[in-house]
Design a protein around this nucleic acid. Structure first.
Length: 573
RNA sequence: GGGCGAGUAGCUCAGUUGGUUAGAGCAGAGCGCUCAUAACGCUUUGGUCGCAGGUUCGAGUCCUGCCUCGCCUACCA
């Protein structure tokens, strides 16, 4: 049996993520993971916090705590929020784990052995006041082209001219504001991915089913004027993975660490090992996911990420793996997402614009967010979140179509036939036709999800929900109750079985609610979805108890919508 | 500047390799039902498919040019 390895792009440790980050990787990968498990595949679903780099150091400094403690705290927080959104990771690790230290150093050593690493002298800006080298974006000054005074060292945001920090007039550190900057020569390791250009190109060519977004970004990087550029993989920082070769400090790199974009993807592998170690499992248990000839030849590996991450997953990380010369599993499919916008603009962490994951859960249950985000996933282009759309989608799809169906069936059943499922069970023509219709949508749903078409899957699921209401309206058990109570009972028995079906097939999308439905109606947990629905829709046995559930989805009122539109405008905070 | 994507009903979007009357959801209109969270069902009004040419028996779908919008462009992760 084929196994499925799924990784979600690593969220940066720097604070709580917003809804755009959620729909960019964790949420769609979770739906896919849950779905593939339901189809009977063995799944390994991995994520971790990406903890290294300058922003983490600075955040810790501003909080006046050691960066290690800061990361510890933020990791716990991010893990808790992911749990609250019911993201079903097999393991949520950390890029700062010992496993990642060892593995990153191992990869560097292998790359060096195979001549894919060289030491390069380069000039970088050093801030005396901050006592550190500054990444380009942490330097601002006057743009030599347009005179804009807050141009960044990598690019002027006003005239969009690409800059070098040394181009800036009156440069200063954004961290301290200090102008005592100097150019210092420093030595870094470079990954010579240019040597792997042909190999990467051929490899990407074989990936026919990849989304346009993914492939076009990859090709762009391979085919710029200068060709594929080599990339620095070390930095002059203290927080990170020490630069080692054969387990000894790399001579001349005593005060340096590997760059986050080198160690972060490797953390996918290291986190799987972290999982294995934590559970005291033999090495085989993680290697069978990651090493060809040790089990990974039967693994299908799917990565989820937002489009900003695509270059690293199509170029740098594959280059690292190819360059190692070892049998590491390469990705089979990359699902890339566009941006989620907030009411026409960008989500912004610094301006507190938009909705952050922790705030979202204070307002509405996770499934509300999950459903809207999935039904509107930015697959083909950027998608705008608006409160109006959120209100309309939730009220219509969840409350009216799904929730109300469950209410009307349960209410009718209990009020007419008591707290037990009606016994009459020979289905008629209409039921058979309905099963046929459901089977069609069910098959669509499975096909779409296997192709990771998130939006379309939501449509297919919605069609399944709608079918129940259509059926009930045609069958009209309330109008034939008097002259033909047996038939009315049969209709309700069938309808109660539909609720069972809904709790099953909706689970990847709205798992919390489905669990609630299953508990309330005492549905037994199904580990593998049925091939077809014929017999499944007759699984509730005689004597099964039925009670009216509480309202599953409360509607979002106009007052709430208006209030939140104002609260989250980002202007008055 | 270069690259990529998008422009289809009032809104959000689907439209496989070009083939007969261009689809869905929401919103609007009408009818029906009354079990239900005034929920549900049925019917229905909206489109010279960004613009201009071209290829073809035939183009939303292919080619050329143009317009508008968005994204990316390598030390932000």
């Amino acid at each position: 049996m084929e196994r499925i390895l799924i990784t979600s792009a690593l969220p940066y440790i720097n604070g709580v993520k917003h809804l755009g980050n959620l729909i960019g990787s964790q949420l769609p990968s979770d739906v896919y993971a849950r779905f593939m498990r339901s189809l009977g595949f063995e799944v390994m679903f991995i994520c971790a916090t990406d903890e290294h780099g300058t922003p983490a150091e600075l955040a810790a400094i501003s909080k006046n705590i050691p960066v290690k403690d800061y990361c510890e705290e933020m990791w716990s927080l991010q893990k808790k929020i992911a749990d609250d959104f019911h993201i079903s990771f097999n393991y949520f690790g950390r890029s700062s784990s010992q496993q990642n230290h060892q593995l990153t150093q191992h990869f560097a050593t292998k790359l060096w052995e195979n001549s894919f690493i060289e030491e390069v002298e380069e000039k970088q800006v050093y801030s005396l006041a901050d006592n550190r080298f500054l990444p380009d974006r942490y330097i601002t000054g006057t743009c030599p082209a347009c005179g804009y005074e807050k141009a960044r060292g990598d690019q002027c945001e006003l005239c969009t001219k690409q800059l070098e920090p040394t181009d800036l007039i009156n440069p200063k550190s954004t961290i301290s504001g200090s102008q005592s900057l100097e150019i210092r020569t420093t030595k870094n390791l470079f990954l010579k991915q240019s040597l792997l250009k042909e190999k990467l190109e051929k490899w990407i060519e074989t990936k026919e089913g990849w989304p346009v977004l993914t492939k076009s970004i990859a090709k762009k990087w391979l085919n710029t004027k200068e060709g594929l550029k080599d990339r620095g993989i070390t930095r002059d920082l203290s927080w990170g993975i020490p630069v080692k070769k054969y387990e000894n400090i790399w001579p001349g790199f005593e005060d340096k660490v590997f760059y986050v974009w080198f160690d972060a993807p490797i953390a996918y592998i290291a986190t799987t090992k972290e999982w294995s170690d934590k559970n005291k499992l033999p090495d085989m248990s993680w290697k069978r996911w990651w090493l060809i000839d040790e089990g990974a030849e039967n693994v299908s590996y799917v990565q989820f990420m937002a489009k900003d991450n695509i270059p690293f997953h199509t170029i740098s990380f594959p280059a690292t793996i190819f360059g190692s010369g070892e049998n590491w599993k390469q990705v089979d499919f990359i699902k890339g997402f566009n941006w989620l916008l907030y009411e026409g603009g960008k989500f912004s962490t610094s301006e507190q614009r938009g909705i952050f994951m922790d705030q979202a859960l204070d307002l509405y249950p996770a499934d509300y967010w999950r459903w809207w985000l999935l039904a509107n996933a930015p697959e083909s282009s950027d998608t705008d979140f608006t409160w109006e759309s959120f209100q309309s989608t939730i009220n219509k799809d969840l409350a009216d179509v799904l929730g109300n169906f469950i209410s009307r069936v349960a209410n009718f059943s209990v009020s007419k036939f008591g707290n037990v499922i009606p016994e009459t069970q020979i289905y008629g023509q209409l039921e058979k036709e309905t099963i046929k219709k459901l089977d069609y949508h069910y098959k669509c749903l499975k096909d779409l999800m296997q192709n990771i078409e998130i939006r379309k899957s939501c449509n297919a699921l919605r069609s399944i929900w709608v079918t129940g209401n259509e059926y009930l309206q045609k069958a009209a058990p309330w109008s034939i109750l008097k002259e033909n109570p047996e038939k009315s009972k049969m209709i309700i028995r069938f309808s109660l079985n539909l609720i069972n079906l809904y709790s099953l097939v909706s689970e990847p999308f709205i798992p919390f609610t489905c669990g609630k439905i299953r508990d309330h109606f005492q549905f037994s947990k199904v580990t593998k979805w049925p091939e077809s629905l014929d017999s499944f829709l007759n699984t509730l046995g005689d004597g099964h108890k039925i009670f009216v559930p509480d309202i599953l989805f409360h509607k979002i009122t106009d007052e709430e919508r208006i209030r939140y539109q104002q609260t989250f405008s980002g202007m008055d905070l």
